[in-house]
Amino acid sequence: MDLFIAIFTGTVIAATPLIFAALGELVVEKSGVLNLGIEGMMLMGAALAFWAVTAGYPMPVAILAGALAGAAASLLFGVLALTFLTNQYAAGLALAIFGSGVSAFLGRGFGSEPIEALHGINVPVLSDLPLIGPLLFRFDPMVYLALVMFAAISWFLYRTKAGLILRTIGESPQTSHAIGYPVIRIRYMAVLFGGAMAGLAGAYLSVAYTPLWVENMTAGKGWIALALVVFATWRPLRILLGAWLFGGMTILQLQGQALGLEVPSELLSALPYLATIIVLVLISRNRQMLALHFPASLAKPFRPAG
């Protein structure tokens, strides 16, 4: 039973940064913009949040600093891709490399000491329940925040007019512009939001998950988040399920090693990517699914006419 609890909670915690980053990227991509720089934005968020904690700021402020750092990094991408209409793939890759470099530079003075991690919540009665307590009511607040963000983003995208506008800009910015919506401004907001979410994901890694500073500590989680959005065929619920699946694989792989499983860990860590490739092949064969959920103008620069 303890092993089950350990695997379950481990999965949920490992999935949390993926949920933040992938949901943020979902909003960006739904607006028709592809930001490949999640890894860089996450590292910026992780570095800033870690620094804020060591500088003595309270935890919520540190996490907010992480989000702001991610948003600031995404602004760089936004200016390149939306104002100067550079190739979005190139701008995103540049951001990923830039963020990794800058965060390593900032992190030189951080030392290698761990900090005190973000505490789990303690709800009277509920947290003390046998089984239910450790399974559901002892996580840190960021785990719950990720779920709230999932609900909020699903509601926003599919139940509000602003979400509808965002989705239709992702399908045809020309038509949206013709109706009179400010395409570039809305895309900027989506990019900034995506950056803030990536920053939160990074902050979670450095102040709750690990909690210490290591250069390039995201270790490819930004790229997994990117793959998750595709894997989920641009649907929020599938992102949530996919994040848990990927998180579960990470934990199983760790547990497998602990149990002395013979499968090489490198092979296990390659599994999520393999799954992504297979899903990509499958969904690109289903045109109807793509027509419904794929942002048709993804990664295409838009310049308003006239």
Binding site: L164, S172, S176, A178
Partner: peptide, 14 residues
């Protein structure tokens, strides 16, 4: 000037 990925009523609401 219609968006393909959403419904008739959503198109008109826009």
């Amino acid at each position: 000037a219609l968006f393909e990925s959403v419904s008739v009523v959503e198109n008109i609401a826009l």
